Computed example of a mutant assay.
Amino acid sequence: MTTELLDAALVEEATKKSGLIWVRGTGPERALWHVWHEGAALVVGDGPGEQPLPGLVDGGAATVTVRSKDKGGRLVGWQAKVVELGAGTEAWEAAVGELKGKRLNAPDGEAMPLRWSRECRVVRLEPVRGVAVLPASDGDLAAVPLPSAATTRDAVPAGVPRLLKRRRAK
């Protein structure tokens, strides 16, 4: 019983302090921003301008890996039960109240909860009790990046170094 309580405390404290968690449901593993609230990690997504939540199915399972906020290394991993919150329910309202304060650069400000209720999903990732906390792996878990429309910058034009040099000379 003591080990289970220590594991739960480790999961809660590490997840609270981390800015991102890595979540794998039935789809690829994704980095998601979250909020820890009432014993679970809350995430919002699958809507326009929000993070994708592939493979997080209501009633399903997920594996969560928590990283260190300062160094970025893996701290702990845990198994979660996925619970999708229905819009307008008391649990949804409490979750959105927490999430809305942590959502950065929202395009619609105070209208965000209304948009989330129409177009997004709010999901609770509840730690499964009695399942041992997964140790941070010693191996490299690097993977090929997922396909994306994002691109890198073009090469610096040939004349830019000369322009910068002239500015420094003045």
Rank of each mutant, 00 (worst) to 15 (best):
G59R: 03
E12K: 09
A106V: 13
A94W: 02
P135V: 08
T63D: 14
A94H: 08
A132S: 11
K81L: 08
V156E: 13
E13F: 08
A143M: 12
L6N: 05
G72N: 05
L104P: 13
I21M: 10
R121K: 11
L56S: 02
V43I: 08
A8V: 04
E4W: 03
G19M: 08
T26E: 03
V44C: 04
R30K: 10
P127Q: 01
T151A: 14
A142F: 06
A136D: 08
G86Q: 15
G72F: 02
V131K: 05
P28D: 14
L114H: 06
A80P: 05
K71W: 15
A62V: 11
G19T: 11
P157W: 07
R166C: 03
I21S: 05
R166G: 01
V66M: 04
L141R: 06
A111K: 08
G130M: 02
G109P: 04
A40I: 09
E38D: 11
E98W: 03
A169S: 07
W22R: 14
W78E: 05
V11Y: 05
H34T: 10
G101M: 07
A61D: 15
V43H: 02
K102G: 07
L20E: 12
G49Q: 06
L32Q: 07
G47L: 01
K102C: 12
V144H: 10
V156N: 11
A80G: 06
A169I: 00
L10N: 04
R74T: 14
R124T: 00
G159V: 11
G39V: 10
D46Q: 06
D46P: 03
L114Q: 08
L10P: 03
A8F: 04
D138C: 08
P147F: 01
A31L: 10
L134R: 10
R67C: 09
A169G: 07
S148D: 01
L125G: 04
L146D: 12
T152V: 15
A111R: 03
T65A: 13
T15C: 11
V44P: 00
G72I: 07
Q79N: 12
R153T: 15
P135A: 08
E12A: 13
G77A: 01
E93C: 00
E38Y: 06
L134E: 04
A91C: 04
L53V: 02
D138S: 11
D108F: 06
E4M: 10
T65E: 12
T15G: 05
T3C: 09
A136M: 06
R124H: 11
G109I: 04
E38N: 12
P107F: 05
G59A: 03
A150L: 15
S137Q: 15
A149F: 11
G27Y: 01
W22G: 14
